[in-house]
Design a protein around this nucleic acid. Structure first.
Lengths: 208, 208, 208, 208
DNA sequence: AATGAATGAGGATTCATTCAT
DNA sequence: AATGAATGAATCCTCATTCAT
């Protein structure tokens, strides 16, 4: 009996988690398309092919749904980058940076909705601005920061406040990715990544 | 008679323009504080110490009020930078860039509401995103782009798509300025500007 | 299971239709009392003993609510007349005409709100005037027109454009009914109907 | 001095009356075009090429402006008909009726705005419905009624309540004129008038 | 007389959220 | 768990009217 119960509950939990994710996915689509404020809970429910009640069963409010979505997006981005860096096993820091940046652009390339969510709608909620900006960048920047600190210790990067450096990298990538959604100038993720890496490492002043 | 009339009309026009600007200023304060969506026309009217009707007498809608505000902010920033560069009469391009970047940070330092408006709320209006991003950056970036092109012709900057370079500079500055509003790490405009200039010109990789 | 579900859904649909009609009825009362423009959605909601939201749940706008009401009124009038004519099974056309006209006056006698709605408020919506006039009279006049054509074929009515004849009959009845709401001169529906029939069939010139 | 003053005052009064009429004419155009409710005082002022204040200088409110307009329209129609009848000096009542009806249609033919004003917008003001309907028809119907009474005394018209007869004639003409604005079936004023006269005098039943 | 800026009550509509079923 | 009907506060905007100049 207990085994049976456990199995059932497990199946149940799985079902539950699946439904949650389904709603999150639907919300992502709608938020990215219409923006946070223009999106209504009715839109979300419709996209989920369910009803108000169901959405509210899994999420207590529109804000919480959005918050959770943002967290998930941040996490997804972070893992995507870490995986790429791990897989590439780069020799030095500049190689690692290049891998990370390329992975970031590719992540956004593959999922345009993420860009809008992370870099546009994260600012949509007014007062909570700080909170979201923090949440989003938190993990992303923390990782970058680690990279920067390591590089500085090895003498691969000049001395500069690592927070600022990490933030600059994140901002640069984010804004460039956002820009691509508006103006299509045919620059691939790889080309953009290369540009950013060059800019970051060697700057724009020509060497002799 | 005519002279008198003309004088009166001129005074009237001035009065009118003054009222318009008053409303614009009030709107700027409120939008920057609460964000575009959380701001109501009642808020704007209250801040103006007038009524709904008066605001609507000068601006046909909340959107148009916001649009005009954005345009004005963009223009103000642009002029502020141009003036600084003109006054400094820098010798070479890197000096010019430094002046420009410092002027930008100082502009934002002096007027924190501008940052929020330009880099946060400009994205607030959903579909019109492209329009506003364009409008705001338009002049700002156009000027930067000119600077970049000139520098490239003189061999002072590496070859890279000038649009991207200009956009990157703008984005970097904007995001760093925005960040300062949230997290106060005591970095002055001058220090930040120096950091950005160094990063942009020489990159983060140490020279031998 | 299925049977139960079907039963429940049917009950639900019925309930829904009932609520709709309840709102429609409330709207009819209010529109007839205050006129289209002077009626607010708050009035309608209050009369329904529900809220804004509920009215808007069933009807997308004030206009659509009004439109639907007008259509329903037109249909009700039409059916009322057709039923009367069918029941009376009149021998000739003039008898049929008399029955129809009497039925019309009786319909309006029984439901004074209808008169106001059909002949006063149908004109209230400005540009949409043609549309409504058309919709309302459409069925009413179409039936009358058929009666007229038949009568003309049998030589019971003089040759004249049937549209005009039908329209004239409808207008005469409508305006007389509307007049009764304002000036009560104690004329019953039957008397008025008789007057109209006489006027239409034999005119006002005495026979020798 | 007194003579001079008088002359000045007279000129002044004339000027004043002229301005009033100008505003009334402008209001007529706008009301007829957009309907009473959709017309704003700003519309009226604009059409007058003056300002709010000027309109309010001559008329205390939108309602009073409308009321006066309606009265003027009613009067104009009435005079137009009386003039026509006087000029034609008809022999008998049926001739007089024909002249009157034709004159009415011609009046409306020449001034389509009048139709809308008298037969559509007169109903626009809800509660005041009775008042306006009365005002409009008052003179018009009073004259018709007189015609009817005279005819009945001479044995030219059957016995029937003269108010109802007069009202019926007025209604028939009004509604047919209104109809012409919506559906253009190419019927001239003369043809319509002839139809109405025939219908009223001899009815629709063919004589043996 | 004329102007037009200012006022603010009022109205249609939206939408997050609740809750009976 | 799920549904979707119900709620009503909140918001943008309109427009008749007033009044200082």
């Amino acid at each position: 009996m207990t085994a049976e119960k456990t199995r059932r509950r497990a199946a149940n939990d799985e079902e539950k988690a699946w439904r949650r994710n389904e709603i999150l996915a639907a919300a992502k689509t709608v938020f990215a398309t219409k923006g946070f404020h223009a999106t209504t809970m009715a839109d979300v429910a419709r996209e989920t092919r369910s009803s108000y009640g169901t959405v509210y069963w899994y999420f207590p409010s529109k804000d919480s749904l959005f918050d959770e979505l943002m967290d998930a997006e941040g996490e997804a981005l972070r893992h995507s980058i870490l995986d790429a860096v791990t897989a590439a096993a780069p020799d030095d820091v500049s190689a690692a940076l290049e891998v990370a940046i390329r992975a970031t652009f590719e992540f956004f390339e593959a999922d345009r909705a993420s860009v809008k969510l992370l870099f546009r709608d994260s600012l949509a909620t007014g007062d909570r601005f700080e909170r979201h900006l923090g949440v989003i960048y938190e993990g992303f920047i923390a990782d970058l920061r680690q990279l920067v600190v390591t590089a500085q210790e090895q003498g691969d990067l000049v001395d500069a406040p690592p927070e600022i450096v990490a933030f600059s990298v994140a901002a640069l990538i984010g804004q460039l990715a956002l820009r691509r959604l508006a103006t299509d100038d045919g620059l691939s993720a790889a080309v953009l990544a290369q540009f950013v890496v060059n800019l970051l490492l060697d700057g724009l002043r020509p060497r002799i």
